[in-house]
Design a protein around this nucleic acid. Sequence first.
DNA 1: GCCGTTTTCGGCCCGACTGTTTTCAGTCG
Length: 576
Amino acid sequence: MLTNSEIAIFFEKVANLLEIDGANPFRIRAYRLAADTIKTLAHSAADMVNDNENITRLPGIGKDLAGQISEIVKTGALSRLETLEQKFSPELHQILKLPGLGPKKVRVLYEKLNICTLGALQEAAVQGKLQALPGFGAKTEQHILQELTLRSQGKARVSWAAAEPIVKSLITYLETEASITEIAVAGSFRRRKETVGDIDVLVAGQNPTAVIAHFVAFSPVERVLARGQTKSSVVLQSGLQIDLRIVARDSFGAALHYFTGSQRHNIAIRKLAHKKGLRINEYGAFKNGQPIAGRHEKDIYAALDMAFIEPELREDRGEIKAALAKRLPELINPQDICGDLHCHTIDSDGFNTIEEMVRAAKKKKYQYLAVSNHTWGHPYVHGLDPEETLTLIKKIDQINQKLDGLTLLKSMEVDILEDGSLDLPEQVLKALDFTVCSIHAELNLDRTKQTERIIRAMDNPYFTILGHPSGQLINQKAGDKVDMPRIIEAARQRGCFLELNANPDRLDLNDTYCRIAKENKVLIAISTDAHRIGQLDYMRLGVGQARRGWLEANDVLNTRSLEQLKRLFNRGSQQM
DNA sequence: GCCGTTTTCGGCCCGACTGTTTTCAGTCG
């Protein structure tokens, strides 16, 4: 069965080739919008088709596209795409991905030189055949050669956490330029997406020329892509692209809004402005040509008579409607967190003792910390057998007696075995305060089997929290190997919880599933899965992801006091 | 191709930079 991402690719490809074909730009955009809608859909589009659900209620999907989705799901192909790929070539998509090459130029390459592969493009560029083409020149040819070389080195999106130190050092560096009065990072970094493709930096200052000169002299800069009057783009040695934009102070808020995006959010906001007789661009909000807002970002929303929308929500997923109705969620903040429910110690594969972890947790003013080591199914991470687990429980009890201000909770990260049973016997499980149950092996079962394995595990009355629920690894492994809406429903029925694992390589649960859990009143445990004291700081990454998932403090398990927590862990008291 | 307090047609967000031009098209965000 096709995943949503796989279905979306069909539409992205149609959009690409339609663009090369010179089709109506709005028709092209409709395909792109549809691809985006499907990609970020919470439920499986294939399931919706098979269940005869009305797909046209999805935004941007009308009768025609609904039919095409159905065709893709039922046949695994799309005749409209095949027709286009016969007219052009399926390989043109690759060329279109090169920066600087858009549909018009690709069409010229195809029609004049019959180029449809990257190899053919490189050959023609080396031979100097490109600069003679209309609209091309020597510089374009050079750029193409450069991009082809860089491409072989690979340039992926980087995780938010990997971008953060780069952003910090850039800001520190920019602050040394005296003419700058304000600096903000915008774009997907500000929206806290799991990964960022580039970094958008916005600056207010009186001397744009000096700012740009300073910017391109940032030592990690490898090459300068563009250097204009008010904007500049560079690529760092790490391959990360930074876009800098300079605006006047009075436009800073409008520009911050514009460059924070997302594009879909901006389009929706500008459409709304249009309806209200306003015009919004990066310089401000205008009524009859006169500026009515621009200095502060919140004024842009106020001009539209709507509540301020936090950056994490700006994805055109209902936030505009909610802001107009003044019914936006009050998003969770790091200070709402009362403790961490998943960490490891040297007793399994951690690097610090329980006592060291406790000291670090106390510094965070936590009320509680749960030690959740691995179980014996995992010899290579020093998983504990039942006897060792009971010994550890006694040890934790002893430490607890000496503690004041913080309570250690007794937990284990229990393996969910292939048949859905848990990796510890009942008499050990019941000695714990709660469990984090995770899958670590047999990761490649088919989707239905994997889903049922988890639900079967939840049938065990000692199952409390599902650890790293989807198994996603940022930039490595998609989290679509389980039917998450079904798992969330199963958790709701059984009084179980889902983890949002805050490890920067996981950030598992994703924003969409957090939101479905919230809608189903299934609480989320934001946990660091720390293996050393420093990793307890991952909590803020988890909170960032939770905010993207519309979560409020009340939607999160570990914002509860210890007493509330213990009541919630008692499944018997809340079972249906 | 979608959509509707302008509902079956006629709109659809908006501006900067580069390179190739000689006033602007193409690309990007």
